[in-house]
């Protein structure tokens, strides 16, 4: 099953299992089913609760917040994560804050899904990963789709938090298969975190969100084949707040698609330094996109974005010193 189908199935089960659940976003109606087809079949099955909006990101986020405030379950689909900036006020200043700013906790079951990431040549306003802008917001949690965890489980986790959650979905990942790892790697999940390794004690841990998982696994595979170094990939579904329990390793690398500066990886590094300092032989290495806009031309885009090669090189440098 491909990742997009897995998210689609999860949406079907949320809407089927919860009469109060809505899906709101642009161009959602069948046969179109959303720009990336993740909403396919939903409007036909739940015509009253799948609402296709005008091109109005601010309003669709605010409306979802209103539904959530009234006790409904609201899932918003952004066409591109880049346009989150247009819904920032209802998300950050209203929805997230409302959970606590009125003195008693207001439950808000609100999920904002955003197709993120580059690699498709869509250019600077359709390729970003905005995770860094969403971390450290009181009342807001950030999750990311990974090929190693059923989206239905992750949705259940987010809804159980009863607070606004942003769900990052990598656009390239949509067409990838769920649970696929190359031999001799295997994946397992513990406490909402996926671990991909060879079963041997690792020489290095690579922490990466789900969107980078394909590149991360390719890099680890190459590290094993060419350098005989065993690495363990750790993919948390919840990116923020960060909570990671790593095996004792001398080297930790964090890879992500955000641009340089104020990164999610820096947040992870600070967490790992605080918790695992004694085990580390060196500070955590950060791998992220260049501090540049994401160009449209594929060859220029490759210069800016994180590739399997970038991750591999960083791991080799980290281990070799």
């Amino acid at each position: 099953m491909r990742v997009a189908d897995n998210i689609n199935a999860a949406l079907h089960s949320v809407l089927a299992g919860d009469e109060r659940a809505y899906l709101i976003g642009e161009d959602l109606l069948d046969p179109y089913g959303g720009a990336f087809k993740v909403a396919r079949g939903l409007s036909t099955r739940f015509p009253d609760r799948v609402l296709s909006t005008p091109i109005s990101e601010s309003a669709m986020t605010g409306v979802a917040a209103g539904l959530a405030l009234a006790g409904d379950t609201a899932i918003v689909e952004y066409m591109f994560a880049d346009f989150l900036t247009l819904g920032f006020d209802p998300l950050v200043n209203f929805a997230a804050k409302s959970v606590t700013m009125y003195g008693t906790r207001l439950p808000m079951r609100l999920i904002v899904r955003c197709p993120s990431g580059g690699g498709r040549g869509y250019g600077p306003t359709h390729s970003q990963t905005l995770t860094k802008h969403l971390i450290g917001v009181p009342g807001l949690a950030v999750f990311e789709m990974s090929p190693f965890r059923d989206a239905a489980e992750v949705f259940a986790e987010m809804l159980a938090l009863a607070q606004p959650c942003v769900f990052v979905e990598d656009k390239i990942l949509y067409t990838r298969r769920m649970h696929a790892v190359p031999h001799p790697f295997t994946a397992s999940v513990r406490d909402g975190v996926a671990y991909v390794g060879t079963g041997e004690p690792p020489d290095l841990v690579l922490v990466a969100p789900g969107g980078t998982a394909g590149r991360a696994v390719a890099a680890l595979h190459r590290l094993l084949i060419e350098d005989e170094i065993a690495g363990l990939l750790v993919v948390p579904s919840r990116l923020y707040p960060v909570s990671l329990d790593l095996p004792p390793v001398p080297h930790v690398v964090v890879a992500e698609d955000g641009t340089a500066g104020g990164t999610w990886g820096a947040e992870v590094a600070q967490h790992v330094h605080a918790r695992h300092f004694a085990d580390l032989a060196a500070p955590v290495t950060l791998v992220h996109a260049a501090g540049a806009v994401i160009p449209a031309a594929p060859h220029l885009e490759r210069e800016v974005l994180v590739t399997a090669g970038t991750i591999y090189d960083a791991m080799v440098r980290t281990v070799r010193g």
Partner: peptide, 28 residues
């Protein structure tokens, strides 16, 4: 196409073009 001679050096692509007196952007 991201080739030599591109108005914006292949960075902007189809929907982000700038020349004196002209600018396009892809955010509605």
């Amino acid at each position: 196409m991201g080739r030599a001679g591109a108005v914006c050096h292949g960075v902007g692509g189809s929907q982000h073009i700038h020349r004196p007196g002209y600018l396009s952007t892809g955010v509605q």
